[in-house]
Design a protein around this nucleic acid. Structure first.
Length: 591
DNA sequence: GTGAAGGGCCAC
DNA sequence: AAACGTGGCCCTTCAC
């Protein structure tokens, strides 16, 4: 494909590009940067294309003269970027939005992201790749040469080949969008796509904002855990080597406590009936009879704390900001949940000792809000179960109310054990829990577990019916959808019982977990509109929780805004039960 | 040495 | 018989 492009290097060229493009509906949009991290490099090129004509704007001559955020010569460029129309079509728009925000000081408004769209269309197919070359090939059947992608974009003079490459990446987006939209419409994914596109800028900003971690506090905590680990490791070592007394005569008893095979052998030597796997929940029931098992679990806990949440977390603090800037994948799971990495900020231990290290800097506050029981409320809404809905409408402690209903006693007569059974089932049903697992986790016998589950589903007939129907539909339709229309395609062979069983559990879980993700994404969009222009910054999200940082003086107001955005988003999807959001202002990331 | 797979554990 | 969903990261083991 020959493409027509012009290289823009001066104020007049920028103005001409603006004049020619501002009235368009859609523009292909791309940037080329000298690094992958906006805190470490510069934007070299910004490209726009209407499909016929492509403008490649070289920012180097401008950057040499002054501040890209304020210089009048770039005002038309900034205006084009933050105008909601034309829609900017980009592949992984978060990347470009971060650079534009950090270096040009404006939001990219009006985003169509072909990466997110491609992921939605793939509907959970893990084999599909979503880089631009693959996506262009899949939807347009063209081969893109990406070899210039990693070329030197800081050179004084860019080569013709580089400029051509840059122009082409933008030019192709207009045609790509058309094909992608066809598929989105065909698959009923337009609403889900809008939900995703509206999150791009908030997430870009969250990554730029980062989350403040008090490094000194973290090190203190780490020291404590290290001391514990040394002690626990020594005790475990001694307990395990009791089973290999002979070997100890030759001084070769040192067991690698991190080696699951060595530990399993040692446990067997001690006469412990080791289950097929030594995962915590399998081992848990043995801890009472075998102190060594309890010690092993204790050891694994502290070992995990040291390895995953130790020094390595501090290495992610960016010197330029003194904060953690995780990567967030917007469609991290097929359900639409986010995932986070480098570091994974969504798996910080819940214990206060860890969480208090994440705090508001001087003069700031954290505003923290999470949905209360959102997945169960979604299930109540989907299933239309009378008793389940009633349990939410009372507004009292949910697990106590369900226990009262299930065991047919007054709420004030519910025992701690009954509440615990109800709680575990309430959590378990959204995953498709079975009696065996329920028995294992509660210590009930198989028949007792079955009996309790019968009581539970007998109380919640509508819920049972919905879950069964979800499982049935997955087998017949081989797709599942969330409230926004987000889709998952199931692939299993006829008669593969294991795969079908897994699909059935997925069929129960996907709409619930996925709708929860829909709601959070909707909330992010509503929130973004409200906090723009305030001191509030998005700093973290954890599936059903949103954390902002803002000026202390403004925190009361921000707290109300956050709570309202989350409630409003929830109420768009959940109608039959109240949506409850717990919001509070804090100095540290604690409840 | 490097990378993938398996097992394990953290979050929701 | 039986297995409770979604992620990321760490360690060991094993093959190359």
């Amino acid at each position: 494909m020959e493409i027509y492009f012009q290289l823009v290097k001066d104020a007049e060229g920028v103005k001409n590009a603006y004049d020619e493009l501002i009235a368009e509906e859609y523009l292909g949009f791309d940037t080329e940067t000298t690094e992958l991290d906006p805190y470490e490099g510069n934007i070299r090129l910004v490209q726009f294309s209407n499909g016929k004509n492509t403008f490649v704007i070289d920012l180097k001559p401008f950057a040499d003269k002054g501040d890209l955020k304020t210089m009048p010569e770039l005002a038309p460029l900034r205006a084009l970027l933050c105008a909601p129309k034309p829609i900017k079509i980009a592949h992984n728009a978060k990347f470009d939005a971060k650079w534009i925000c950090h270096h040009l000081g404006v939001d990219v408004n009006g985003v169509f992201d072909t990466l997110l769209a491609s992921q939605l269309i793939a509907a959970g197919d893990q084999d599909r790749r979503h880089n631009l070359a693959e996506v262009a090939n899949f939807f347009l059947g063209v081969e893109l040469d990406k070899s210039e992608q990693v070329s030197d974009w800081s050179a004084e003079e860019l080569s013709q080949s580089q400029i051509q490459y840059a122009a082409k990446d933008a030019a192709i987006m207009v045609a790509l969008r058309e094909k992608v939209v066809e598929r989105l419409v065909q698959d009923g994914l337009i609403k889900a796509a809008k939900l995703e596109f509206d999150c791009v800028v908030p997430i870009a900003q969250m990554e730029l904002n980062g989350f403040y971690l008090d490094a000194a506090r973290w090190r203190e905590q780490l020291e404590k855990v290290r001391k514990t680990q040394d002690k626990v490791a020594a005790e475990l070592q001694r307990m395990l080597s009791a089973g290999v007394a002979q070997a100890s005569l030759f001084g070769v008893t040192e067991i690698n406590l991190d080696s699951q095979s060595q530990v399993t052998d040692a446990l067997k030597n001690l006469g412990v009936p080791v289950p097929a796997t030594t995962r915590g929940w399998q081992l848990e029931p043995l801890a009472n009879d075998y102190p060594v098992v309890g010690k092993l679990l204790e050891y694994r806990g502290v070992a995990k704390a040291i390895s995953s949440f130790g020094e390595s977390l501090l290495e992610f603090i960016k010197p330029q900001t003194g904060r953690l800037h995780s990567d967030f994948r917007q469609i991290g799971a097929p359900t639409g949940r986010f995932s986070s990495s480098k570091p994974n900020i969504q798996q910080i231990p819940h214990e206060e000792a860890y969480r208090r290290c994440f705090r508001a800097p001087e003069g700031k506050k954290l505003v923290i809000a999470d949905y209360s029981q959102i997945e169960l409320r979604i299930l109540a809404d989907f299933s239309n179960d009378e008793n389940f809905i009633k349990a939410f409408q009372t507004g009292a402690d949910f697990h106590t109310i369900t226990a009262a209903q299930v065991f047919n006693v007054k709420p004030e007569e519910v025992s701690a054990e009954q509440r615990s059974f109800a709680k575990r089932l309430n959590f378990g049903v959204v995953y498709g829990i079975g009696a065996s697992r329920f028995a294992l986790m509660t210590g009930l016998s198989q028949t007792q577990a079955e009996d309790t589950m019968r009581k539970y589903f007998g109380t919640y007939r509508g819920l049972d019916a919905w879950l069964r129907d979800a499982a049935r539909r997955v087998v017949s339709d081989r797709i599942s959808r969330t409230a926004s229309g987000r889709m998952y395609r199931f692939r299993f062979e006829e008669g593969d019982r294991q795969a079908i069983g897994a699909a059935q559990r997925n069929g129960k879980n996907f709409p619930i977990q996925g709708t929860s993700a829909d709601i959070l994404k909707r909330a992010l969009h509503l929130l973004h509109k409200e906090i723009t222009g305030t001191s509030a910054k998005l700093v973290n999200i954890v599936h059903d929780e949103i954390i902002l940082e803002c000026d202390a003086a403004e925190s009361e107001e921000i707290c109300k805004i956050l709570e309202k955005a989350m409630c409003d988003a929830g109420e768009e999807y959940v109608k039959k039960v109240p949506v409850k959001v717990d919001a509070h202002i804090a100095d540290e990331w604690t409840k």
